[in-house]
């Protein structure tokens, strides 16, 4: 899919994440004060409140925590797509993100909880930011 909704800016918390996507990097944060993994990105640590976070680059590998194959939707751009899998993926570094798991075939049969997946950055025709999605390892 090459016409996904793009992130909107200015939005300071998530800008470094999307700048990373342009570089092919899946970025997340850790707290320099309490060491917590922080995701979605924020300027403060969601565990301890400290404003001292470091950006890191994930290896992009993780496990499907849960998913749903969407059979009916009224979202512009997704309506013509056919069945697609929305998922929470737990990255090995300890953060969970909402994403799509894209398979070569029928998602009803090929997406599973516990499945190992790896990030891929899907180039978009209609926007400058590639979208991080996941494929089976």
């Amino acid at each position: 899919m090459e016409n996904r909704p793009q992130p909107h800016f200015p939005e300071p918390d998530t800008k470094p994440f999307w700048d990373g996507a342009k570089e092919g990097e899946l970025r997340y944060q850790t707290c320099n004060s309490c060491s917590a993994v922080n995701f979605y990105p924020t300027a403060h640590c969601q565990k301890c409140g400290a404003g001292d976070l470091a950006w890191r680059v994930s290896k992009g590998e993780g496990t499907v925590y849960t998913f749903s194959v969407v059979m009916q939707n009224r979202i512009p751009g997704f309506q013509e797509l056919g069945a697609y899998a929305v998922a929470y993926v737990d990255l090995d570094e300890g953060f969970r993100m909402l994403t799509n798991v894209i398979v070569d075939g029928n998602p009803l049969e090929m997406v599973k909880i516990g499945q190992r997946v790896k990030v891929d950055f899907e180039k978009q025709d209609t926007g400058e930011y590639p979208i991080p999605i996941f494929r089976p390892l």
Partner: peptide, 24 residues
Amino acid sequence: TGGRGGGASWQANMEGAYGSTLIS
């Protein structure tokens, strides 16, 4: 079956690209 609202927000920027419906 509609999607998440658009606009620049912390959460929408992280979730808006994936066609996640309320039911899903």
